[in-house]
Design a protein around this nucleic acid. Structure first.
Lengths: 207, 207, 207, 207
DNA sequence: GGGTAACCGAGACGGTACGTCTAGTCTTTAA
DNA sequence: TTAAAGACTAGACGTACCGTCTCGGTTACCC
């Protein structure tokens, strides 16, 4: 699901009617080689120091092939990172709102720990000067967490678990904020912080 | 106060004893021209697209002069931005902890609004792939806000305004997090969000 | 004698009358340090790659001190090289013109062998793009060899050893040419070549 | 013929079999623009003061394009200069050895007169500190003159025109030496000198 | 099975910027 | 006044990538 947001190719046209599609089709093996090479290279260098040329070289692919299918480096990197199984966000339906929020916080912190967290931080960094990259990041990663949290909070407000007067969107930012702030300020997302933060946030939400 | 952290020059030696100081002294006018040019250029381009060459060109200064006094682009940018009067952080002593935290949140949000906020976001972005730049950012900007908030929260815990069992450092991250998260996720720091957030955070802190 | 040609400083005033000479006197130790450092550096790098900065650094001297006393790098190098005892050109008075020419060829070839030869070649190279350096080279090195050869050839023409119809200046160029050509074309001035050449040249000169 | 020595490109593969030749082909117009710009710039500045950047700027070409096809500045300059029609060395077959040597001397002196001579002198100068440049100079310019003279001298020795006991290689250096020496010592290659020299040299060669 | 068309790799292209180096000048204090 | 130190503007160095382009060659689909 994640990658369909990123995907830019003509495949986007998936309408009912079969389109006349002349010409050689996109090479699936090249696509995989590009993403795999990107992941490999990111274990050694930062997103900003990663170059399209290096990806192409390593993947044994022409630069044009990359430029044809992705609008910029950030898009390649995000598809490479977020298409990994660890980044799928399917949550088990929780027993109550409190538990749902806790589970989402936990899951997100686990996803952002270790190497992947650093890379996501670098992606966010890259996105600060490229509005388009920021949009892709939001659509392909943040949106889903927003939606999940949103449903939990709305649910909590209805059941009376959470205060009725809190603004859902603001609340989400208050929840996600500390996590990403720790990430970009170079601090660990250690268990101590996670539990401290969780208690504070739930106290803020509760009725 | 901010810039003393960044400052690199031999002026650091300000001891009582007179030092032998051979050679032509640092040109104050070049220093000012560099910082001013940096500020001007940043109104047109992002931090990442800003080049040392462009700064030198615009300031009518040799590249070496920049490299002599600043370790990298981020350091120049930070000194240019944070040395502006708007970024001094002198807070009036508040009547109580609650008011102190509110004032600090307000002040920070005002500093990060408009053009400056974007630039700070870009600085943070740049720092994601340069540990040294991150360190400078923390020392020359974040640390002060940390210290101020820390004293308010500790005070609040002692007077009984705030809960005794909260961890001060975690609390600070919970407070600063949402602000910087809005910033880096490209959303406005509008009044509605600020007041929503403030209420939630203070609820989380209160005894 | 050699170096007076190169010398440019105010010492040029060597008139009888004592001149009032205010200010700190020229440092003889700096002068020696500069020349010695130049010689040392030239054992590692070529004349063109030798920089004034490197000389100043090595000699523990300001760049200004060098620029004050020598017009350019070539002048420093030539004074450093040609002031060595090996480069004095005092010839014993020969028994006849033939022997004089032979002796001069021999001496020159010996002076231009090994490391010194390479350096002289580099000086000539440097002088190709700096007319002033070329002039200094001619005055401080070539001229003396010209004069000596000229007197031998003129003498030979008078005694009938050499043909009357040869032009002395042209003859000198014909004699010196092959030596310097071997030098700048990177070939050794080996004994075989020296004797081959000497025979041919004397045959050309003889009546 | 001259430039094939300099040429570095993959075109060197001119075998019968068709080679697969991927990628965009070398731009002939860029190549011409580079050489032409080099020639133009050399009418104003010396070889040593000529910079690759200036060539690229004037030719409207990226620096990389120059570095891709030539190993260094000297190589560009030599191809620019020696690929001119005036520098082809095709000699008419002479009636005898004497005439051949005279013709070669004449031709060379004509080629080295005026502006071109100065540039060749500068090339030689440049080559004094760059062994690789010297090698290219020898291969792309000197070698041909050597070969031609060699065949004439060998011929002359066989027909009895020239002395049997002269060493051909030494003789060539004796012939070329005076010409290049006049060049690098900044003197004109005027007709008077050329005829004086020619007579002396042929006298030296004759049986 | 031939035509068509988009794909592929390779790699050259004009550019920009990097961070370093040196030139030659300027400006200070100490001798 | 000169020496020494070292900062100054200026600009070239050779390298790395950018994003575009131009090749020869490949692979599907449709008639």
């Amino acid at each position: 699901m994640t990658d369909t947001v990123i995907e830019q190719g003509p495949e986007a046209v998936k309408d009912d009617e079969k389109h006349f599609k002349a010409g050689r089709p996109r090479s699936e093996s090249s696509r995989r080689a590009i993403l795999e090479s990107t992941r490999r290279l990111l274990t050694h260098v930062s997103v900003q120091k990663l170059s399209i040329e290096a990806i192409a070289r390593k993947a044994g692919v022409g630069k044009t092939t990359i430029y044809r299918w992705w609008p910029n480096k950030s898009a390649v990197v995000m598809e490479a990172i977020f298409s990994q199984p660890a980044f799928n966000n399917i949550m088990q339906t929780p027993r109550n709102a409190d538990e749902g929020v806790r589970a989402q916080i936990d899951k997100l912190c686990r996803q952002l720990s270790a190497k992947n967290g650093r890379t996501v931080a670098e992606i966010i960094g890259e996105a600060q000067s490229e509005p388009e990259a920021l949009k892709i990041f939001i659509n392909s990663f943040l949106q889903e967490r927003y939606n999940t949290l949103s449903s939990y909070i709305e649910g909590g407000k209805q059941t009376g678990e959470f205060a009725q007067d809190i603004d859902t969107d603001s609340a989400i930012d208050v929840i996600l904020g500390p996590i990403f702030f720790r990430l970009i300020s170079g601090q660990e997302l250690d268990d101590g912080f996670i539990s401290d933060m969780t208690e504070m946030l739930l106290k803020a939400l509760r009725a």
